[in-house]
Design a binder for these strands. Structure first.
Length: 218
DNA sequence: AACTCGGGGCA
DNA sequence: TGCCCAGAGTT
């Protein structure tokens, strides 16, 4: 596991590589963000962004989602994948918003996690992006990057990764770091072919050095 | 912890 | 073709 100085190196490198990193899901209010994040599970942002503009043109409020027949909503989001469950969840979630939150999106992680189709990751993203609550949403990118760099241990669960990052990163940097790590993971420290040769963090990355050695042997 | 849902993108 | 993707819910 990295020490404090090494962690600072990581945060600085993330900033230098992806200073403008931010949530890429197109949305103009918390409700649209919530729906977009629910839809984005196991799908790419690019794909979700192709569907949501038209979707939000048609559905503007939780009531709109409640009113439409399930089959019609499923058809509207078919291209995204996992659409059967997602359509059900969005209808159910909309009903909960209306019945328990006055039609508004709640701002706390706990309230968000109680909504259908919203797990810890989605709750963290919405709380952080829409309401500026301190949170680190651990998706596959953040998890992979954390483990490769040694910001967390290999055998850590997703929850343990989140808790470790929260412990090691200053709270005022949680949000930016979250987004920068996602960009770092998607464009640089990729799951399949990480670009270790051109990585500014190779000097402190055991996984990267291991990969380099392996490549040199071949 | 493992399994399922699932179409799209990419090699 | 085969494999992976900004996960959540159930068993």
């Amino acid at each position: 596991m990295l020490n404090k100085k090494q962690i600072r190196h990581c945060l600085d490198a993330f900033e230098e590589m992806f200073p403008e990193a931010e949530c890429e899901l197109t949305h103009s209010n918390p409700f649209e963000l919530l729906v977009a994040v629910v839809l984005s599970a196991q799908a790419t942002d690019a794909l979700v962004n192709k569907v949501t503009p038209g979707l939000f043109e048609k559905y503007k409020t939780p009531e709109d989602f409640m009113a439409v027949p399930l089959e019609e909503l499923q058809d509207d989001i078919r291209r995204i994948g996992l659409y059967r469950n997602k359509a059900k969840n969005i209808k159910k979630l909309s009903q909960t918003l209306v019945e328990e939150h006055g039609g508004e999106v709640p701002s706390t992680k706990k309230q968000l996690e109680n909504l259908a189709g919203v797990g810890r990751k989605t709750a963290n993203v919405v709380a952080s992006v829409a309401f500026d609550e301190p949170a680190i949403a651990v998706d596959t990118h953040v998890e992979r990057v954390s483990k490769r760099l040694g910001l967390s241990r290999w055998k850590d669960s997703v929850l343990e990764v989140e808790k470790t990052l929260m412990r090691k990163i200053p709270i005022e940097e949680w949000s930016v770091t979250h987004h920068r790590m996602i960009f770092f993971g998607r464009y640089h420290c990729k799951a399949q072919r990480p670009n270790c040769e051109e990585c500014p963090l190779l000097f402190l990355c055991r996984e990267g050095q291991k990969r380099i050695r392996k490549k040199e042997k071949q």
